[in-house]
């Protein structure tokens, strides 16, 4: 697995797309920091960008990689290598190269700006942790989609739908159900509902950092316990990890049974 990972990773970090992606973050970070001169504002804007963009890039890139390297995958399959090693290796190769673009792309402008001398360093670390989680999750989901769909057009459509659902539609439904049932106690429900969407979970991590003052204004005891103690952070990170582990397990399971 690590051999596959190694080669995929080195292949990908030399690809044009990795550079485009890296340059995008480099530029975004630089523009936000050096034109605005406001670290807090830059971090907030980046968080908003990351929770939307990273899932989109993760899914699309994952799907694209898989379809483009189909023949190569077949070559690998004919080698004396375990199947799961091939797919998990490919998955990790893609996900880690994306993470690296993100971390380096944002890291350079922030370090140049003098991040280490500022109080915002934890916000920034949180930003990178969230971005890494989302990359791992959505690349894994992309691999799941393609393992079930040999048809490229279907695969791409499903992945865009998945992103749209997680990023926008889910929250729309969530909001409507909260408003529809507002006469009932909803805090357990609303915390529960965020667990089923990794984008929401990442959002919660960010809220815990940026909007804790507003969150504590809410009266519900469950909310208070969730946001007011370390519990929220703990549960969110746990749920995000689960969101990585479950799709990866499914890749492992599915790839062993699949015909190529």
């Amino acid at each position: 697995m690590f051999k596959i990972l190694k080669y995929i990773f080195f292949d990908l970090i030399r690809s044009r797309w990795s550079y485009v992606y890296l340059l995008f973050y480099l530029l975004l970070g630089a523009v936000l920091l050096f034109l605005n001169n406001d670290l807090s504002k830059a971090v907030i804007t980046l968080m908003n960008v990351i929770i939307i963009l990273v899932p989109l890039i993760g899914t699309l890139f994952g799907v694209m990689y898989y379809y483009n390297s189909k023949e190569f995958t077949e070559l690998l399959l004919a080698q004396p290598i375990k199947r799961s090693s091939i797919f998990i290796g490919q998955y990790l190769g893609v996900a880690l190269s994306l993470c690296m673009s993100l971390i380096i792309g944002l890291g350079i402008p922030f370090v140049l700006y003098g991040l280490f001398q500022s109080n915002e360093i934890w916000d920034f670390v949180l930003l990178l942790v969230t971005g890494t989680f989302l990359t791992l999750i959505f690349t894994a989901l992309a691999f799941n989609i393609v393992l079930y769909n040999e048809n490229k057009i279907k695969g791409f459509s499903y992945s865009i739908l998945l992103w749209l659902f997680m990023a926008v539609i889910y929250d729309g439904l969530f909001l409507m159900s909260l408003i529809a049932f507002q006469s009932y106690p909803l805090d357990s429900f609303s915390i529960g509902a965020t667990m089923f969407n990794p984008i929401d979970l990442s959002r919660i991590l960010i809220l815990l950092k940026l909007d804790i003052s507003a969150l504590l204004g809410y009266t519900g005891a469950v909310f208070k316990k969730f946001f007011g103690t370390g519990l929220g952070l703990f549960i969110s990170i746990g749920a995000l990890s689960l969101w990585v582990v479950l799709p990866v397990l499914n890749i492992y399971r599915k790839c062993r049974k699949k015909d190529f």
Partner: peptide, 20 residues
């Protein structure tokens, strides 16, 4: 305004849907 009406919706803060 929504949060005033239904306080639990605060959990959706900073969501893309809310931005829209």
């Amino acid at each position: 305004y929504i949060v005033n009406k239904t306080p639990e919706t605060i959990i959706l803060m900073r969501s893309l849907f809310i931005d829209i």
